[in-house]
């Protein structure tokens, strides 16, 4: 039995909450068919983090996260602009923004590491995530944002459902698609921003995408999918943190993602509503029933029991 320091317990709580928030917002992205958008925006956050550091010359989380939010939003605006003002399709626009912003971020990072104090800034940990670098203040920020995401989801429960399922009909009822889209984008960027310190800009998207996708294999209900995604996301965050804390300097992001992918594989095979095993069993049962039907008439001599 591992004995956890008080700090690790706090970090554990916050990555769990982060996973829950990411699971919920990831469901929104999944239904909007924008899973890739979350990946583009997490990568797009990197230049902002470095710029936020460079402005003050010391590590100041509010500045770095503020910078992350700004550059992620800038990335979103670029994607929107490329898509509407040229013939480039959305997936290509995301690919462009993802790689250009990430490249810019790495370049800035190289420069920042040469600044006095740059080496000790812990900037590198934003790439793959390092939950051990989090302090109590970061934990409070993560808890606050997670609660905000959960509250916004619960309060506007039916509005989200309508917006995600049929925004046109919603528009006819007076639900502004523009406002809902903006709110969705704000939630997505908030979750990315609080998540990159623990999960890293490269792997953050996996925490947004996989819990929702996994949850879909277990349920046909909207609430069920959101609840399960929160559960899977929370478990991924917590287990990933525990594993990374058991080694010295192990990054957190990869372990969070590995946990999420184990949950995904389990869901894919054993999921009760769309899982491969269930589909196989249903197919077998149908075939058996068909065989039985055929064996009833006397002239049929199919004797194979399915």
């Amino acid at each position: 039995m591992m004995i956890l320091s008080a700090n690790t317990q706090w970090v554990l709580l916050s990555t769990m909450m982060l996973g829950m928030a990411a699971g919920v917002v990831g469901c929104f992205a999944y239904w909007k068919r924008q899973s890739l958008m979350s990946d583009a925006l997490s990568h797009a956050a990197l230049p902002g983090v470095v710029a936020g550091f460079a402005v003050l010359g010391t590590k100041s989380l509010p500045f770095m996260l503020g910078g992350a939010a700004l550059s992620a939003l800038l990335g979103a605006l670029f994607i929107q602009w490329i898509r509407t003002s040229s013939r480039v399709k959305e997936d290509a626009a995301m690919g462009i923004v993802l790689s250009v912003f990430f490249g810019l971020g790495i370049m800035l990072l190289t420069l920042a590491n040469r600044l006095p104090g740059g080496q000790q800034s812990g900037l590198d940990s934003f790439i793959f995530g390092q939950s051990a670098s989090m302090v109590r203040q970061d934990v409070y920020t993560m808890l606050g944002v997670t609660l905000l995401v959960l509250i916004v989801t619960l309060v506007a429960w039916k509005e989200w459902k309508l917006f995600l399922f049929d925004p046109q009909f919603g528009g006819g009822l007076g639900l502004s698609g523009r406002v809902m889209n903006l709110l969705y984008m704000v939630l997505l960027v908030l979750v990315i921003v609080i998540g990159i310190q623990a999960a890293g800009v490269i792997l953050m998207a996996a925490l947004l995408i996989m819990p929702g996708v996994s949850a879909r294999y277990w349920t046909h209900s909207y609430g069920g999918m959101i609840g399960l995604a929160a559960l899977f996301g929370g478990a991924s965050g917590a287990v990933g943190t525990l594993v990374s804390a058991s080694g010295n300097g192990w990054p957190t992001g990869p372990f969070i993602v590995l946990t999420a992918s184990v949950l995904f594989v389990i869901s894919l095979t054993l999921g009760t509503s769309k899982g491969l095993l269930v589909m196989l069993l249903q197919h077998r049962a149908q075939r058996a029933a068909l065989t039985k039907q055929h064996t009833h008439p006397a002239h049929e001599t199919v004797e194979r029991g399915g």
Binding site: E159, D166, L173, Y222
Partner: peptide, 28 residues
């Protein structure tokens, strides 16, 4: 115009027609 794989049932979709009457941010 919609994705019918969305996780919801027939009754829930019909309820959406009442959202205006129910009032925004209120529960049915």
């Amino acid at each position: 115009s919609v994705d019918w794989d969305f996780p919801t049932n027939a009754l829930d979709v019909v309820m959406m027609g009442l959202y205006g009457k129910i009032g925004w941010l209120k529960w049915p």
